Simulated assay, not measured.
Amino acid sequence: MSVPSLQRLSITKECATYGSDEPRLEISTPCLKYLKIFECRGYYNFLEDMPKLVEADVSVDMSKNEKLLRVLSSVEHLVICLYPSIVLDLTDSLIFNRLLHLELNTYPEYTEDQLYCLGSEPSSVPKCLSFHLESIQWRGYAGTLDEREAAAYILKNAHRLKTSTIRLHRTCMDNGQIIMKDLTSMSKASASCQLVIV
């Protein structure tokens, strides 16, 4: 698909319509400003950067679409589904100079090959996290070790953070009070950050 003037792109496929097909799409849209992909089985190859991209809402299999993160680096508003262990890679391996709002939807149900812990924090704190990020929403937080380390890292280093909303995963409601206490005890770089846990 090559549409040089395209500014909005939405790719959606409902789970109920899945067959055995895995869509493969090469995309060339250098003027794109808004991107939404809700399609967990496809492969998407973006042939060039999208420096005008402002907002992205992405729910894909990141193991098949590793290069997708590169084209998201100019966004101001990012909604993305990730395994918690990838959260630090998201901020360390890429430069998100304009990122103001980050919404994470995490997958708490792991298979054995996805159960790996964060090795260490990134060697340096990305500027987007230290000086730009103003709000974060985290959906599906279950209090796993990976999630806890990622949350602690973000709160400890986000100096401009104004709001941090963490929505607990439905499976951890029995331990909700313990998880809430743990989150509220984490040190925060921003004294004005309002932490909301629901």
Rank of each mutant, 00 (worst) to 15 (best):
15 C>L: 13
54 V>M: 09
96 F>V: 07
80 I>T: 03
64 K>M: 09
92 D>I: 03
33 K>L: 11
124 S>E: 13
165 T>M: 10
106 T>R: 09
7 Q>S: 11
52 K>W: 05
29 T>G: 04
131 F>Y: 11
6 L>Q: 01
28 S>E: 11
168 L>F: 10
106 T>I: 10
180 M>I: 15
14 E>F: 10
191 A>P: 02
98 R>F: 10
6 L>R: 01
70 R>K: 14
153 Y>D: 08
11 I>T: 10
76 E>L: 01
34 Y>Q: 03
1 M>C: 09
127 K>R: 09
134 E>H: 08
20 S>D: 12
85 S>K: 13
107 Y>E: 13
85 S>C: 09
133 L>M: 13
93 S>H: 13
93 S>V: 05
121 E>Y: 11
108 P>W: 04
156 K>F: 02
30 P>K: 04
61 D>G: 00
147 E>P: 00
35 L>I: 10
18 Y>P: 02
141 Y>T: 01
157 N>L: 08
56 A>W: 05
14 E>V: 08
7 Q>E: 15
192 S>E: 12
93 S>W: 08
24 R>M: 08
157 N>C: 09
34 Y>F: 14
2 S>G: 07
117 C>G: 05
33 K>D: 06
22 E>G: 00
194 Q>T: 11
184 T>F: 15
82 L>Q: 06
157 N>V: 07
171 T>R: 12
169 H>N: 15
182 D>W: 14
112 E>M: 12
21 D>H: 12
75 V>M: 03
193 C>M: 15
140 G>P: 00
14 E>K: 12
116 Y>Q: 11
125 V>L: 06
168 L>Q: 01
64 K>V: 04
91 T>F: 15
188 K>N: 04
131 F>E: 14
38 F>G: 00
108 P>Q: 02
136 I>K: 04
98 R>D: 14
71 V>D: 06
5 S>P: 04
174 D>W: 03
91 T>S: 09
25 L>Q: 04
111 T>Y: 09
123 S>D: 14
102 L>R: 05
39 E>W: 03
36 K>I: 11
91 T>G: 10
137 Q>K: 15
75 V>E: 02
192 S>W: 00
77 H>E: 11
18 Y>Q: 10
186 M>W: 12
32 L>I: 08
13 K>W: 10
17 T>Y: 14
151 A>F: 06
154 I>S: 05
40 C>W: 06
74 S>M: 06
189 A>T: 04
83 Y>E: 09
167 R>E: 13
102 L>C: 08
191 A>W: 02
190 S>K: 04
144 T>C: 10
180 M>H: 09
40 C>I: 14
87 V>N: 02
187 S>T: 13
87 V>I: 15
80 I>D: 01
70 R>I: 03
99 L>D: 03
68 L>N: 02
70 R>S: 14
64 K>E: 05
178 I>R: 12
34 Y>I: 08
182 D>M: 15
7 Q>D: 01
46 F>K: 02
61 D>Y: 08
32 L>W: 10
176 G>Y: 05
59 S>F: 14
124 S>H: 08
187 S>V: 09
149 E>S: 07
185 S>F: 01
51 P>Y: 05
27 I>Q: 01
46 F>E: 02
147 E>R: 01
69 L>V: 12
156 K>Q: 13
181 K>L: 13
46 F>N: 03
